[in-house]
Protein backbone atom coordinates (compact mmCIF):
# COMPACT_ATOMS: atom_id res chain seq x y z
CA UNK A 1 0.00 0.00 0.00
CA UNK A 2 2.86 2.35 0.88
CA UNK A 3 4.58 1.47 -2.37
CA UNK A 4 1.43 2.10 -4.35
CA UNK A 5 0.95 5.46 -2.68
CA UNK A 6 4.54 6.44 -3.42
CA UNK A 7 4.08 5.43 -7.00
CA UNK A 8 0.88 7.47 -7.14
CA UNK A 9 2.68 10.51 -5.75
CA UNK A 10 5.55 10.15 -8.20
CA UNK A 11 3.14 9.86 -11.12
CA UNK A 12 1.19 12.91 -9.94
CA UNK A 13 4.30 15.03 -9.58
CA UNK A 14 5.51 13.86 -12.97
CA UNK A 15 2.25 14.83 -14.65
CA UNK A 16 2.23 18.22 -12.98
CA UNK A 17 5.88 18.79 -13.95
CA UNK A 18 5.16 17.79 -17.54
CA UNK A 19 2.12 20.10 -17.68
CA UNK A 20 4.17 22.97 -16.27
CA UNK A 21 6.93 22.31 -18.80
CA UNK A 22 4.47 22.29 -21.72
CA UNK A 23 2.84 25.48 -20.44
CA UNK A 24 6.21 27.16 -20.12
CA UNK A 25 7.12 26.14 -23.66
CA UNK A 26 3.94 27.67 -25.10
CA UNK A 27 4.43 30.73 -22.93
CA UNK A 28 7.97 31.13 -24.26
CA UNK A 29 6.88 30.61 -27.85
CA UNK A 30 4.12 33.16 -27.43
CA UNK A 31 6.60 35.71 -26.13
CA UNK A 32 8.87 34.99 -29.07
CA UNK A 33 6.01 35.88 -31.44
CA UNK A 34 5.50 39.18 -29.71
CA UNK A 35 9.19 39.91 -29.93
CA UNK A 36 9.17 39.39 -33.71
CA UNK A 37 6.66 42.13 -34.32
CA UNK A 38 6.87 45.75 -33.25
CA UNK A 39 4.58 46.75 -30.45
CA UNK A 40 2.85 49.24 -32.71
CA UNK A 41 1.72 47.16 -35.64
CA UNK A 42 0.64 48.96 -38.80
CA UNK A 43 -3.12 49.39 -38.88
CA UNK A 44 -4.83 48.52 -42.12
CA UNK A 45 -6.09 51.72 -43.64
CA UNK A 46 -9.85 51.39 -43.74
CA UNK A 47 -10.58 54.97 -44.75
CA UNK A 48 -10.30 54.28 -48.48
CA UNK A 49 -13.72 54.43 -50.06
CA UNK A 50 -12.73 53.54 -53.61
CA UNK A 51 -12.08 49.90 -54.42
CA UNK A 52 -8.52 49.12 -53.44
CA UNK A 53 -7.77 47.50 -56.81
CA UNK A 54 -8.44 50.73 -58.72
CA UNK A 55 -5.97 52.63 -56.54
CA UNK A 56 -3.08 50.29 -57.25
CA UNK A 57 -0.87 51.34 -60.13
CA UNK A 58 1.39 48.60 -61.31
CA UNK A 59 4.98 49.75 -61.69
CA UNK A 60 7.37 47.67 -63.76
CA UNK A 61 11.07 48.26 -63.31
CA UNK A 62 13.75 47.41 -65.85
CA UNK A 63 17.39 48.38 -65.78
CA UNK A 64 20.59 47.99 -67.74
CA UNK A 65 24.06 48.13 -66.26
CA UNK A 66 27.05 49.64 -68.03
CA UNK A 67 29.86 47.46 -69.37
CA UNK A 68 32.13 48.24 -66.41
CA UNK A 69 29.30 47.89 -63.90
CA UNK A 70 29.75 51.46 -62.66
CA UNK A 71 26.46 52.91 -63.90
CA UNK A 72 22.90 51.81 -64.31
CA UNK A 73 19.92 53.20 -66.19
CA UNK A 74 16.52 52.40 -64.71
CA UNK A 75 13.14 52.52 -66.44
CA UNK A 76 10.00 52.58 -64.32
CA UNK A 77 6.79 52.00 -66.24
CA UNK A 78 3.52 52.90 -64.58
CA UNK A 79 0.21 51.75 -66.00
CA UNK A 80 -2.13 54.69 -65.42
CA UNK A 81 -5.24 52.58 -65.99
CA UNK A 82 -6.35 55.16 -68.54
CA UNK A 83 -4.84 53.57 -71.60
CA UNK A 84 -1.58 55.36 -71.04
CA UNK A 85 1.79 54.43 -69.63
CA UNK A 86 4.17 56.74 -67.83
CA UNK A 87 7.86 56.08 -68.29
CA UNK A 88 10.39 57.45 -65.84
CA UNK A 89 14.06 57.06 -66.70
CA UNK A 90 16.80 57.60 -64.17
CA UNK A 91 20.51 56.92 -63.85
CA UNK A 92 22.27 55.58 -60.79
CA UNK A 93 25.51 54.06 -59.63
CA UNK A 94 25.98 50.38 -60.42
CA UNK A 95 24.85 49.57 -56.89
CA UNK A 96 21.64 51.54 -57.41
CA UNK A 97 22.70 54.44 -55.19
CA UNK A 98 22.52 58.11 -56.20
CA UNK A 99 19.51 57.63 -58.45
CA UNK A 100 18.74 60.69 -60.53
CA UNK A 101 15.73 61.15 -62.77
CA UNK A 102 16.60 62.24 -66.30
CA UNK A 103 13.41 61.90 -68.35
CA UNK A 104 9.69 61.32 -67.90
CA UNK A 105 7.06 60.85 -70.55
CA UNK A 106 3.53 59.51 -70.84
CA UNK A 107 2.58 57.60 -73.95
CA UNK A 108 -0.41 55.69 -75.19
CA UNK A 109 -0.34 51.99 -74.43
CA UNK A 110 0.44 51.22 -78.08
CA UNK A 111 3.74 53.06 -77.88
CA UNK A 112 6.61 51.44 -76.01
CA UNK A 113 9.95 52.51 -74.67
CA UNK A 114 12.89 50.29 -73.81
CA UNK A 115 16.51 50.25 -72.76
CA UNK A 116 18.82 48.66 -75.35
CA UNK A 117 21.52 46.22 -74.23
CA UNK A 118 24.20 48.63 -75.50
CA UNK A 119 22.61 51.72 -73.99
CA UNK A 120 25.72 53.13 -72.28
CA UNK A 121 28.64 54.77 -74.04
CA UNK A 122 31.92 53.04 -73.15
CA UNK A 123 32.91 55.92 -70.86
CA UNK A 124 29.42 56.10 -69.29
CA UNK A 125 28.97 59.77 -70.25
CA UNK A 126 26.06 59.19 -72.61
CA UNK A 127 23.22 56.74 -72.99
CA UNK A 128 20.49 56.17 -75.51
CA UNK A 129 17.01 54.77 -75.08
CA UNK A 130 14.60 53.39 -77.63
CA UNK A 131 11.11 54.53 -78.48
CA UNK A 132 9.09 52.06 -80.52
CA UNK A 133 11.05 50.15 -83.14
CA UNK A 134 13.03 52.94 -84.73
CA UNK A 135 13.09 55.87 -82.34
CA UNK A 136 16.31 56.60 -80.48
CA UNK A 137 17.01 59.37 -77.96
CA UNK A 138 20.44 60.24 -76.64
CA UNK A 139 20.92 61.65 -73.14
CA UNK A 140 23.78 62.80 -71.01
CA UNK A 141 24.39 60.59 -68.02
CA UNK A 142 24.01 63.63 -65.77
CA UNK A 143 20.60 64.45 -67.20
CA UNK A 144 21.89 67.90 -68.16
CA UNK A 145 20.86 69.51 -71.41
CA UNK A 146 23.12 69.54 -74.46
CA UNK A 147 24.83 72.75 -75.56
CA UNK A 148 21.80 73.85 -77.60
CA UNK A 149 19.54 73.50 -74.58
CA UNK A 150 17.92 70.23 -75.63
CA UNK A 151 17.43 67.62 -72.96
CA UNK A 152 18.02 64.85 -75.47
CA UNK A 153 19.07 64.38 -79.07
CA UNK A 154 16.41 62.80 -81.23
CA UNK A 155 18.56 60.54 -83.36
CA UNK A 156 15.72 59.61 -85.67
CA UNK A 157 14.88 63.24 -86.46
CA UNK A 158 18.50 64.26 -86.90
CA UNK A 159 19.11 61.37 -89.26
CA UNK A 160 15.99 62.18 -91.29
CA UNK A 161 17.10 65.82 -91.59
CA UNK A 162 20.37 64.68 -93.11
CA UNK A 163 18.44 63.26 -96.13
CA UNK A 164 20.78 60.40 -96.87
CA UNK A 165 18.22 58.57 -99.00
CA UNK A 166 18.09 55.79 -96.42
CA UNK A 167 15.89 55.18 -93.43
CA UNK A 168 17.30 54.59 -89.99
CA UNK A 169 16.52 50.99 -89.08
CA UNK A 170 18.43 50.58 -85.83
CA UNK A 171 21.04 52.08 -83.56
CA UNK A 172 23.08 49.04 -82.60
CA UNK A 173 25.39 50.50 -79.97
CA UNK A 174 28.55 52.52 -79.47
CA UNK A 175 31.54 52.22 -81.81
CA UNK A 176 33.56 54.38 -79.44
CA UNK A 177 33.01 56.80 -76.59
CA UNK A 178 31.02 59.29 -78.70
CA UNK A 179 29.97 57.35 -81.80
CA UNK A 180 26.64 55.58 -82.14
CA UNK A 181 26.46 53.00 -84.92
CA UNK A 182 23.40 53.36 -87.13
CA UNK A 183 22.15 50.79 -89.59
CA UNK A 184 19.83 51.80 -92.38
CA UNK A 185 17.38 50.35 -94.81
CA UNK A 186 17.02 51.47 -98.40
CA UNK A 187 14.19 51.02 -100.85
CA UNK A 188 12.16 47.89 -100.19
CA UNK A 189 13.83 47.44 -96.81
CA UNK A 190 17.09 46.28 -98.43
CA UNK A 191 19.99 46.85 -96.06
CA UNK A 192 21.57 50.24 -96.58
CA UNK A 193 24.98 51.53 -95.49
CA UNK A 194 25.94 52.02 -91.87
CA UNK A 195 26.63 55.42 -90.33
CA UNK A 196 28.27 56.91 -87.31
CA UNK A 197 26.45 59.54 -85.29
CA UNK A 198 28.90 61.61 -83.33
CA UNK A 199 27.14 62.91 -80.25
CA UNK A 200 29.09 66.12 -79.42
CA UNK A 201 29.02 67.48 -82.99
CA UNK A 202 25.82 65.73 -84.12
CA UNK A 203 27.71 64.77 -87.28
CA UNK A 204 26.45 61.83 -89.32
CA UNK A 205 29.21 60.00 -91.14
CA UNK A 206 28.66 57.26 -93.71
CA UNK A 207 30.85 54.20 -93.24
CA UNK A 208 32.46 51.97 -95.84
CA UNK A 209 31.77 48.86 -93.77
CA UNK A 210 28.39 47.59 -92.67
CA UNK A 211 27.68 46.72 -89.09
Amino acid sequence: MTITRTQFEIETVSFIAFAVAVSMFFLWQNNQKYRQFPIVTPVVNMTETAPAQAMVKKVDIASQISSDGEKKVIMKTTNNNTGTLTYVFSTADGSGDNEKEIYTTTLSAEETMSIPFNTWSPDNKYLFIQKGDRGFMVFKDSGEAFSDGQLFLDLTDLFAQRKTGHNLSEATGWGSETLIIINTAGEGEAKGPSYWFEVPSKAIIQLSTEF
Partner: peptide, 25 residues
Protein backbone atom coordinates in the same frame (compact mmCIF):
# COMPACT_ATOMS: atom_id res chain seq x y z
CA UNK B 1 36.39 42.48 -71.72
CA UNK B 2 36.16 45.39 -74.18
CA UNK B 3 36.24 48.96 -72.87
CA UNK B 4 36.57 50.68 -76.26
CA UNK B 5 33.16 49.88 -77.70
CA UNK B 6 29.71 48.90 -76.55
CA UNK B 7 28.23 47.23 -79.58
CA UNK B 8 27.72 43.71 -78.32
CA UNK B 9 25.48 41.46 -80.34
CA UNK B 10 27.32 42.57 -83.49
CA UNK B 11 30.73 41.48 -84.85
CA UNK B 12 33.26 44.06 -83.74
CA UNK B 13 36.59 42.35 -83.10
CA UNK B 14 39.70 41.20 -84.91
CA UNK B 15 38.89 37.58 -84.08
CA UNK B 16 38.59 37.50 -80.31
CA UNK B 17 35.33 37.21 -78.42
CA UNK B 18 34.63 40.63 -76.92
CA UNK B 19 32.40 40.84 -73.88
CA UNK B 20 31.09 43.50 -71.53
CA UNK B 21 33.62 43.92 -68.75
CA UNK B 22 31.17 42.72 -66.10
CA UNK B 23 30.41 39.59 -68.11
CA UNK B 24 34.07 38.92 -68.90
CA UNK B 25 34.89 39.25 -65.19
Amino acid sequence: GAYWHNNFGHPMSHGCVNMRIVDAR
